[in-house]
Design a protein around this nucleic acid. Structure first.
Lengths: 225, 225
DNA sequence: CGCGTAGTTGACACTATTCAATGTCTGTGG
DNA sequence: CCACAGACATTGAATAGTGTCAACTACGCG
């Protein structure tokens, strides 16, 4: 995968304008990035690989994760359209990244961006902002992990709803197992919690991947109950 | 506290050379920083305050934390001598910071550092490195929080031992409550886990704050058991 | 010496996990 | 168009691990 990226970075300097427009409106990548596609469950980069590229999600979704020695998987973050990932402020990735579903990303050579950033004040600022956001997400994630199962699930849903910019209904790209591995719960507990929330009327589940937030006030109350 | 810092930054440009020497050997702060002292349990900065300064611990220890709406406290990180904190890649602090015990820090104006970094390649690099380390610590912290109580405590102890550079014995500056709030456990569970580890012979507890790692091999095995 | 804080220990309740079974959706081939 | 396989999701019962509440102990400081 990494190899493909390298190739297309060299060859294709003028990707389809549709992609460029989409990305440009959302971040610093549109002007210099190269589009790539990744299929469901395919690796984008591996842990401990050199962090040669930065990525911005155009469509689809990405998970970053680590596998522990005993086989458990901890998902560090989900990235949705517009999000930048692969940028860990160091030259080695601290997680692996996979496409959750069919995903389009804009890819940019890290070095190129850093060089540009050294004389484009605006770009440097955007890189720091992306890093600050990353730190903030990690911290929010930490807060989730010390709460009860119900609070974790609600926190996750509210975060997804906010980031999807759909206030009432969200289409989850990730499986229950992904959610469980993100929240540090088992798939069964996640499932049970979804059902409880549905039964108490705060969410609706037309399909297992589609969540409608019915009672925002109660959801917000439950986050700290 | 913030005010004091501002004052001393303006007034005292030539702090005691002892402090400068100590800090210089450990990071980028020695050449431009100003020393400050904080007493036990005093605030260094508050959440959502403007991040005007960066700090480097000279002696003592610092905790950063957030208080949740329901009153629980999550400690985000502990900082030991040599560590840089208060730098969250954004212009607002995402946590509060307090001295755990009598603590000396070197303080530097964020702006000054950023200006210098723009033409001192080395300094810029150090800032990114500090940020990368911060991200790495957050991630390791995440991994801890999905484990069992025993694994969390062991992970914490191994981290402390590594950072204190003492391979066998560590003097913990923080209380059991601090450890509990860092690990997302109760003080009782932390205490019980310490006792268990002592009884199984992998650690010794000459006093409640002093921990000796007796069986490193077994400790490492237990981290993922 | 006595007080207050910090730490430990015990009994019990409760939450999430484990293991197992059942249910649902999607895509494929008959 | 329907039947089936395989992956994904839900549900149930029993268990293990933490949390809660309360009592007790150890230590440092005035």
């Amino acid at each position: 995968m990494q190899t493909e990226a390298a190739v297309s970075l060299e060859i294709s300097r003028h990707p389809t304008s549709v992609l460029r427009e989409q990305a440009r409106s959302q971040g610093p990548f549109g002007m210099i990035g190269t589009p790539m596609r990744f299929g469901r469950n395919t690796e984008i980069y591996g842990e401990d690989e050199a962090a040669e590229y930065l990525y911005q999600v155009v469509s689809g979704a990405v998970r970053t994760y680590k596998i522990l020695e005993d086989g458990r998987r901890q998902i560090a973050a989900f990235y949705l359209p517009g999000d930048i990932f692969g940028f860990e402020a160091s030259d080695t990735h601290i997680s692996s990244a996979e496409a959750i579903c069919e995903t389009q990303v804009m890819v940019v050579k890290r070095n190129a961006l850093i060089v540009r950033a050294s004389h484009e004040r605006d770009l440097a600022r955007q890189l720091w902002d992306a890093t600050a956001l990353e730190l903030r997400r990690f911290q929010e994630h930490l807060m989730l992990l010390i709460s009860s199962a119900e609070e974790r699930v609600i926190g996750f849903l509210l975060d997804m709803a906010r980031r999807a910019k759909k206030n009432a209904a969200i289409e989850l790209p990730m499986s229950r197992q992904d959610i469980a591995d993100y929240l540090g719960l088992t798939i069964e507990t996640v499932s049970r919690t979804f059902t409880q929330l549905e039964q108490s009327g705060v969410i609706a589940l037309p399909t297992s991947r589609r969540v409608e937030l019915r009672n925002r006030a109660m959801l917000n109350r439950l986050t700290t109950a």
